[in-house]
Design a binder for these strands. Structure first.
Lengths: 207, 207
DNA sequence: CGAGGAATCAAACGATCGTTTGAGCATACG
DNA sequence: CGTATGCTCAAACGATCGTTTGATTCCTCG
């Protein structure tokens, strides 16, 4: 049982603090001393529980992406191959789980961590993400290919790539995604989804 | 005159090496020792010529963005307010200078540095970029507003934001932008511009 | 030629980094 | 009760960080 205020086990308190500090200062910019101080645990606890800082970084991704991509795949399975499925449906299956994740504060921090991971061209990290979660992108791309049969493979990859960039940028909290204080949370999420889906669908379907 | 192989003055050799290493390892991840070693200059040269590492970072941005945004503004001035101007024309004015910059190897590295700057939520850096180059984004947004009179201000900001994200992502070299070896450079650049402009225009004009 | 400012150099500064150590504490089981 | 086992802790490890110093070299100009 932890002695400090929060009643969470040490491992999870580290993961929470890591998510926040990685989002703010990057993976190299956030030190284990800042991190353990913010979590209220001993400096050595990171190496004891995770082995190294790199493995901690991977664990931060694993915890969130398992949940995020699980929901994405579940939503996609429901509509994949269905003749009635539209581009907008597929985009909804991709975007809605991410917006749900952004619902609580710690989840939205993770989207910024993810945006950082894209910006870092670190090969180890990219390989880890590709190996563990690449199949999700491939499944969604395959479904887009089915719904956009007139697009060449190259053209399709281009558009999916651009959609990915737009969504990552938007959801990492740079611009418009901040909720105004007079709009309730669930309504803001629906509006955000509408903007993202409308924009991405138009780009994908571009003549 | 420098003693080493390249016939460039020390200051520019530092800027070149900084661009490359910042793109690869980030601003905190690239050390002055790596940097000066790569540039073939003494460690103290950075602080002598630039004052500090932070000022070096700003100088890396200033050098490229002055050129990039100068060309963007010049291209925009030619078409702004013209009744015959299309969305595609404005996007071309925004995108073409960036693709020209990506033409030489060092220029394309800079687009990755720029993508990193977006991912970092460092307030100092964001303030610097906003103060020095924010007027460019405002001018382009104003022109989009003229050409899309039916969009609410909020809707317009959303779409411009998403276009920015898509372009930054694409031009920082994550995905499709790599040129295949059997395609000549100028042709690749035209094709890339077509993909980007087509996608962005469709997103902006979305019903 | 000789003075003087600009530039470069090796070396060191204190601070901070990720990681390791070994003692100390707690809880569970024979 | 005694002893494992899991965990926490302060302290230290060597390495590396950005920056500063003071001497030395280079080049220009009187």
């Amino acid at each position: 049982m932890p002695a400090s205020s929060a009643a969470l086990p040490t491992k999870e308190r580290i993961l929470g603090a890591a998510e926040e500090l990685f989002a703010q200062h990057g993976f190299e910019g956030a030190s284990l001393r800042q991190l353990t101080a913010a979590a209220g645990v001993n400096l050595a606890a990171v190496n004891y529980h995770f082995g190294s800082k790199d493995r901690l970084i991977e664990e931060v991704f694993r915890r969130r992406l398992d949940q995020l991509n699980g929901r994405r795949m579940a939503a996609l399975q429901k509509i994949a191959g269905d003749p009635a499925t539209t581009i907008e449906d597929v985009l909804e299956a991709f975007i809605a789980p991410a917006l749900e994740l952004s619902h609580d504060a710690s989840g939205s921090l993770f989207m910024r961590v993810l945006a950082r991971a894209f910006a870092e061209h670190d090969d180890t990290l990219r390989k880890f993400l590709s190996e563990n979660y690449g199949h999700v992108m491939r499944q969604f791309t395959a479904e887009f290919a089915r719904l956009l049969p007139n697009l060449s493979k190259e053209e399709l990859y281009w558009r999916v790539d651009l959609v990915t960039g737009a969504l990552t940028h938007a959801m990492s909290g740079f611009g418009m995604i901040q909720r105004k204080s007079d709009v309730p949370e669930h309504q803001h999420r629906e509006q955000t989804a509408e903007h993202l889906i409308g924009f991405a669908a138009a780009g994908l379907k571009s003549p």
